[in-house]
Amino acid sequence: MDFLKMMKQAKQMQEQMGSLQEEIAEIEAEGTAGGGLVSVKIGGKGELKAVKIDPAMFKEEDVEILEDLIIAAHNEAKAKVEQAMQEKTQEMMSGLGLPAGMKLPF
C-alpha cells in the first residue's frame, strides 16, 4: 500500500466529512401527527425549529392528546432527518470507493 496515497485519501475523506456535517446542519424535516392537527419542523441536529397546532386542538380535555401528538410529530421529523443523513453519508462513501457499510471513526 502506498502510504502517501493513503494519507491523501484520509485528508480527502476528512474534508468531505466536514462538508457532510455542514450539509446535515442545513437539513430540515417536517413531521405531522393526528392527521395534520400537529406538525413540527426540526433541523439536522434534532433542534426543534417550528411547531404548528390546529386551533381545533385547543380544548382543555385534549391537552394530553396534544402533548402526545407533538411527540409523535417530532419523532417522525427526526426519523426523516436521520434517513437524509444516512443517504448523504452513503453517497459520500460510495464516492470514495470504500466498502459498503464501513464505519468511520469520526
Score class of each variant (00 low, 15 high):
I65M: 15
A25T: 05
V63W: 02
G97V: 02
I42T: 07
Q12M: 12
S94T: 13
A25Y: 06
A73F: 06
Q86F: 05
M102G: 03
K88Q: 14
A33S: 10
K78V: 04
M17R: 14
E26F: 06
I27F: 13
S94A: 12
K11T: 05
M17S: 04
G97D: 02
G36T: 09
E30Q: 06
Q21A: 09
A100P: 15
E67D: 12
V38R: 00
G46Y: 13
K103M: 03
K8A: 06
Q9E: 14
F58K: 11
K49E: 02
M13E: 03
Q21M: 07
S94F: 09
Q90Y: 02
G44I: 11
K8E: 07
Q21K: 13
K52Y: 08
D2Q: 11
M85L: 01
G43T: 09
L20I: 04
P99K: 14
E67W: 00
M92F: 05
D62L: 14
V40H: 03
K5D: 13
I42E: 01
F3W: 13
K78R: 14
M85S: 04
M1L: 06
G31M: 02
L4S: 14
H74M: 05
K5S: 03
T32N: 11
I42R: 10
E61I: 11
G31S: 10
L69K: 00
D68K: 02
K11A: 09
V81F: 09
G43P: 09
A79H: 13
K49V: 09
L20C: 07
M93A: 12
A33Q: 00
E30L: 01
E22G: 11
M7P: 03
A73H: 09
A50R: 14
G95P: 08
G18S: 07
G43H: 12
F58V: 07
I27E: 03
T32R: 15
G31D: 11
K80E: 10
M93N: 07
N75K: 14
Q14E: 15
L104A: 04
E26T: 14
I42F: 05
V81P: 04
S19C: 02
S94I: 07
